[in-house]
Design a protein around this nucleic acid. Sequence first.
DNA 1: AATATTTTTTAGATGCGTCTAAAATAAACT
DNA 2: AGTTTATTTTAGACGCATCTAAAAAATATT
Lengths: 215, 215
Amino acid sequence: MTYSEENYLKTIYHLTSMTEEAVSTNAIAEKMDTKASSVTDMLKKLAEKDLVNYIKYQGVSLTENGKLAAKMIVRKHRLWETFLVEKLEFSWDEVHDVAEQLEHIKSEKLINKLDDFLGNPTEDPHGDPIPDAEGRIIKVEKRLLSELEKNQSGICVGVKDTSSDFLKYLDKQEIALGSQIAIIEKETFDNSFKIRVGSKELMISNKIASNLYIQ
Amino acid sequence: MTYSEENYLKTIYHLTSMTEEAVSTNAIAEKMDTKASSVTDMLKKLAEKDLVNYIKYQGVSLTENGKLAAKMIVRKHRLWETFLVEKLEFSWDEVHDVAEQLEHIKSEKLINKLDDFLGNPTEDPHGDPIPDAEGRIIKVEKRLLSELEKNQSGICVGVKDTSSDFLKYLDKQEIALGSQIAIIEKETFDNSFKIRVGSKELMISNKIASNLYIQ
DNA sequence: AATATTTTTTAGATGCGTCTAAAATAAACT
DNA sequence: AGTTTATTTTAGACGCATCTAAAAAATATT
């Protein structure tokens, strides 16, 4: 499988993982910052290899083969991210670009040895689940902080948005995985929140609250 | 720099590192298992970027830019090999192919952090020197085992051939970096040797002796 | 339902790296 | 020196992944 095929597969996996529905050519093009025509070309190729179910004008979804292949790429990506943070002292906002490259290294032995070296982690530094060598994922039930009501609280277990900007913001506010977060006030006007993180209180917008997973 | 450009640069570096002379198109083609015409195309491209000195029909050598770039690739390759052996329990005959991929990962931070993580090693698992972040190489004076005379001895500090076959042979004979090796007898007929490794005696061909570095 | 708009696909072109076949140059040999 | 042989380069093609522009199909609008 080429580098490019892998990237398409991964994108389709992420776009379909929430909805379960077929995803549109345009959605893929937008996500990958490419043109719809390029996407169409690739979809034909992937369909040929039985990695996607593709019907002209009807969007695309992953076959079982495709799903497994995509999971293996996600597995690699998240294991490498874990390695970068845990062993090489990268911060969680710096790992994405490097992991994007590392995820394409082809060696089953490498990734399984890395998995062992890291102690077979089940989640990456952003709280996302790491598929095991068979593609199994341990699902943890988690909610968005924005779904909590006043006086409810929980522990931050993940982030939805993993952009560098967002992660840097969290670092600045000293919000990390494992942080205890309590809703002090919910502002009905703009749906912003007053929260307590550890011993500090702060205001966060609804957008922030909608990108933090709580357990 | 593309994946392919990096591979050419690395090959030219290795071919010129011994001789200091310009290297021929054919030599590169043979080493890379490709066609001379492909090499010519690439040499033009590399010359355009001031990475090689290339004169039609006269062979090619690295510019200072090219030499530094090549060293950085070699640095990455050897650091990754060290990582695989020291941290992920790969054996020294398994690391090459994976390191060939890993050496193309683009991130200065990654490679420098990896260097630190490994304790800034100066040599890889085959005894080859690892250039530092500025391209400096610590040269260790070493000789081929085949240059020793009867009753001389030394410590194995590296291998010239790093093929899987050769390394597996060494494992089988329990010859490793650090092994004490003494010449018991030199056979003038075929230039083979009777040697002692640790407490064991064995016969080795001249080809074997010509691929072991001793200090 | 007919038309306008949006989405998607096709057709054809480009850059990269590769190849084969043929031409040009260099080296080796009478 | 002239000829043969080997090496190297050029010319032209192909596969991959991408693009633009235009055509086709689906969706939305009136």
